[in-house]
Write a protein that binds this DNA or RNA. Structure first.
Lengths: 127, 127
DNA sequence: TTTGACCCTCACATCAGTGTGACGGTTTGA
DNA sequence: TCAAACCGTCACACTGATGTGAGGGTCAAA
């Protein structure tokens, strides 16, 4: 598919799809006329990228992470240098930290909303 | 405490502490000489802010979230407008999305690392 | 064959978070 | 009392993720 369709299906600006490519996160082929050609699997990949970006990871890190997702069994594990493995390990830990932070705060918001709703309800039934 | 100590205890640049203040996230008092004075609780708050920023939330949103954490029981719930409540609800949902995304990817990294290690181990023992 | 809807590259702009340094006042300990 | 180590405000700069627009090709349908 071409960039317009991909943009629409992933809810991503064309500009950003080109940017992700520039950062080495996706690699479309080119049609004879120069148009980018994306295959079906790119849809999921872009959604993934957006998710990770939204969760605060920079493209530099996302680039290292993506290959693990293609085939988590590590088919090309021999290409993984010691350095990369260490980076992945560190990143995994920092993701755990993020998750904990988000969870804690999300739950606090939940409690807050709950409390407000309960109070509102109580007030309403008092009348 | 003054800004230097807070910076050291939270691992945050002074510059950023001033920036957070400018964004309305923390409100130090001022000593007679103009120096900022932070109380003990600010340490936790700054850590919280850093965590949320790292998880991709902008200061604008963090500002709305923080009051819920001060007292999740919603002591000042009446100050919460309908609009704010809706924003919080939306933000809570988007945080859940982030958490899921991070969890999924973190686990995939974990599996990958596991696979690589297993393969490395197998190779070593074969020799 | 022209028009409208695509696509391309290039480049400049914006926004948030962050770094850094200039310039000057305050506090503290030798 | 003087130096070192704080603190203050400004303000300019950078980075990464985005927006936007100019100038120009491609292609399909009327």
């Amino acid at each position: 598919m071409r960039i317009g369709e991909l943009a629409e299906r992933t809810g991503t600006a064309r500009r950003l799809l080109r940017y992700y490519e520039e950062q080495g996160l996706i690699k479309p082929t080119r049609a004879p006329n120069g148009y980018r050609e994306y295959d079906e699997s790119t849809v999921d990949r872009v959604v993934q990228i957006k998710g990770l970006l939204g969760a605060g990871l920079p493209t530099r890190i996302i680039k290292q992470i993506l290959p693990c997702l293609d085939d988590p069994r590590g088919i090309q594990f021999d290409r993984a240098t010691q350095e990369t493995l260490e980076l992945l390990e560190r990143e995994r830990e920092s993701m755990t930290g993020r998750i904990q932070c988000l969870t804690r705060n999300r739950d606090a918001i939940g409690e807050y909303l709950e409390a407000v709703r309960a109070a509102t309800e109580a007030r309403r039934s008092r009348r």
